[in-house]
Amino acid sequence: MAFPAQVEALVKQGLVWQGQQAPLHRSPSNVLTTGWPELDQRLGGGWLQGCVHELQLQQQFIGELTLLLPLLSQPNITTLWINPPATPYAPGLIYQDIALLQQVIVQEPDNKLALWAAEQAVQSKAVDLVLFWHTTGLSAAAVRRLQQAAEAAQKTVFIVTAIQPEDDARAYAMRLRLTKIAAAPLQVEVLKRRYGWPLPPFPCAIESRLPRRRRVL
């Protein structure tokens, strides 16, 4: 349905946030496969280009990077890592077929500057993917600004944080929560997704990219 002329102008300037993006003028083509079939099927095809995704971790290093490896190891994907929890290790990345020359690492303790760097990256034509580790979680305004910048430049952004309180609404297009219980495979819970209701936790078998687990020696 068409909006009145003034409203149409505002929408064009991107100043109006529309609660329910009508799927009709968003073609499914701008969806990036996650590389894991069970995840693609639940997220309506995969990660969304031009959107900010949030990964909440029950604990660090439980497989969150392995989840993103298929996307990272796409041939001409340039990625900006902001404040990674440890040193991205060259031999490990090479083993996973990731091109070292296309990774840029930024270490910036000051949140405002880190956010500025993320926006710079999103706006520059050189970077396709931004991974942003943020221990405490972004403020609502920051998320909205980042979402708009990503949407305008059709870039994909991931914010990796700790578990967030249930009721905090954020402008993320997609929010997932990852948990690991004993030897069971990684549990993924979809808290929010664009084309559907939240889903209960389901296992996602990411073992193929990890060393073989053996019965206890």
Binding site: L100, V104, I105, L113, W116, A117, A126
Partner: peptide
């Protein structure tokens, strides 16, 4: 190259030390 343009912009603001690249060199010590 646009990438080095972005990098030099980030370096200008955040300082040279804080924008880094991942390097592999031939040494058995991890």
């Amino acid at each position: 190259d646009q990438l080095s343009a972005l990098v030099s912009r980030l370096q200008a603001r955040l300082g040279e030390q804080s924008v880094q690249s991942v390097c592999y060199n031939d040494d058995w010590r991890p």
